[in-house]
């Protein structure tokens, strides 16, 4: 948890205070789309796992409780702008 994360409400805080919420995959598709098990699996379980900068969700669980997106360099494990 060496990453420091900027919460939109509380500012830059240490990574221990946050919960990772996965890659930003966009809003959940309609149920009619997810009726196909392969489409459901793609949405729920498949990730890009990018080595580099990716947009992802974090929750300031030990702070204000907000969910928000940051861009993180997964190689250096630092937040980027």
């Amino acid at each position: 948890m060496s990453v420091s994360i900027t919460c939109p409400v509380c500012g830059k805080r240490k990574g221990y205070e946050f919960r990772f919420g996965g890659e930003d995959k966009g809003a959940k598709p309609e149920e009619s789309v997810l009726a196909d098990p392969a489409a459901w699996c793609d949405y729920v379980h498949m990730n890009e796992c990018r080595a580099g900068v990716q947009k992802e969700w974090w929750c300031h669980k030990d702070g204000c409780g907000t969910w928000f997106c940051i861009k993180r360099d997964t190689v250096k494990n630092i937040e980027v702008k």
């Binding site: 919960r19 919420g21 966009g26 809003a27 959940k28 969700w57 929750c59 669980k61 409780g65 907000t66 969910w67």
Partner: peptide
């Protein structure tokens, strides 16, 4: 629980 509610409505 609060986190769960907020997570699943994060795009709304």
């Amino acid at each position: 629980t609060a986190e769960w509610f907020r997570f699943h409505s994060r795009y709304e």
